[in-house]
Amino acid sequence: MISAIQSKKDLKDDEIIRRIKQNDVRIWEILQVRYYKMMEIFVTKNSGSADDAWDNFQETMAALFVNVSKTNFRLTCAFKTYVYQINRNMWLAELKRQKRRPIRVYDNEDNELADIDTSDELVEKEYRIKLIEREIEILGENCRKIIKLYYYLKKSMKEISLEIGYSNDANAKNQKAKCMKQLKAKLGHGRI
């Protein structure tokens, strides 16, 4: 099995993308074999432990899956660089969340990664996502349910009202607005 995975190390970037889009069960092990060490080195060089690297790897793979699955996804650099970039932004965002953002970031010494985008904008986006994720976790159960039904499962207000047991979809809409207001307030910026 492992040799089978290793034999896939020459997979072309577009083949990897195609297999991620298809959620091919083997592609995730191949990605782990190919890129985990690279990702771990970045995290451990930048104040993280091996456990942090493992957690960050899983977060990175989830983000990768979501991004690649989008219909408008286009790879504009080497896939390896793309993976490194997400892992990097994700970890720097986590350090910021923990208020441990380093003054200097130590990137891997790898010529293939010379063209990474080191702008703060991408780190900020990941930071925002992390904050929202944590705030959603501590919302009430109904709010979490409504958010999942609406934003992930793309249910209509009518379907949500039926699923949760509201008397009509106006109640569901009202409840969703309250949840979003609560979330916004917890995030602590803006007027909404």
Partner: peptide, 21 residues
């Protein structure tokens, strides 16, 4: 962002069993 968070959470859940430390 909320849409992204919910999608990633589901992806994390789905992919968890596919990785082996």
């Amino acid at each position: 962002d909320v849409e992204e968070v919910t999608a990633r959470n589901e992806a994390k859940f789905e992919l968890k069993s596919k990785f082996n430390r």
